[in-house]
Amino acid sequence: MASDQAHSPDGAMPDPIHQFEIKRILELDLFGIDASFTNSSLWMVVSVVLISLLTIWGMGGRALVPNRLQSIAEISYEFIANMVRDIVGVSGMKFFPFVFTIFMFILFMNMLGMLPGAFTATSSISVTAALALLVFFTVIIVGFAKNGLGFLKLFVPAGIPKVLLLLVVPIEIISFLSRPVSHSVRLFANMLAGHITLKVFGGFVTMLIGTGGALAAVSIFPLTMALALTALEVLVAFLQAYVFAMLTCMYLHDALHPGH
């Protein structure tokens, strides 16, 4: 939600889309690629700094009985470690730092996006698609590296009549290829829709107050709604990071154990 709201010419309703605009803070050019430092980059950097502070400075005490910050770091660690162990298996623990980085990065980008004025980096399809494709190609590379052509067994479920395979194999291939799409769009759409809804209800409040009189009193309803939605969005911010990490684990499981 952007604090510096852009008002449309009629001035009645703040633009709910404005918050997703990329603003170039520092124009940069890297070998002909536009590498400008934008508001999106800023919040990515903030996420990295905060995660590093939590996991390094927060663990600074290395106390036997942890304080709050250390507890958060340890709980995050064990949460993701258990997820990887349960879904990918013990052999998948070498992907633990990867899944942990993905989970914490998305979680912090989502949560920081809930701050007024902050930019939600995960509300852009390019970011979520890049992360989903990273997982997708990791799965393919690890799958072929570990199993060779045996990785193709992923598309041939065991114990199915040969005739049905004609039908099942194309379906499996299509579902595999559509993974990065659903993986990225789920996160992107959730963040986008949530922030638009919040902004619309917030806009109602300012609009109603702006008209003054009896209508200003009615603004309590969209305000209540915005409050409830904020709580929901905090939940969604966590849940989508969890779902993204969970699906990453499931895809990595396929890479290590392609037989169904």
């Binding site: 390019s126 970011v127 890049a130």
Partner: peptide, 17 residues
């Protein structure tokens, strides 16, 4: 610009983690 900085920050974070 988003992808460049995503790559930079993600790789940094991965290495730190």
């Amino acid at each position: 610009p988003q992808l460049v900085w995503l790559a930079i920050t993600f790789v940094t974070l991965y290495i730190i983690m």
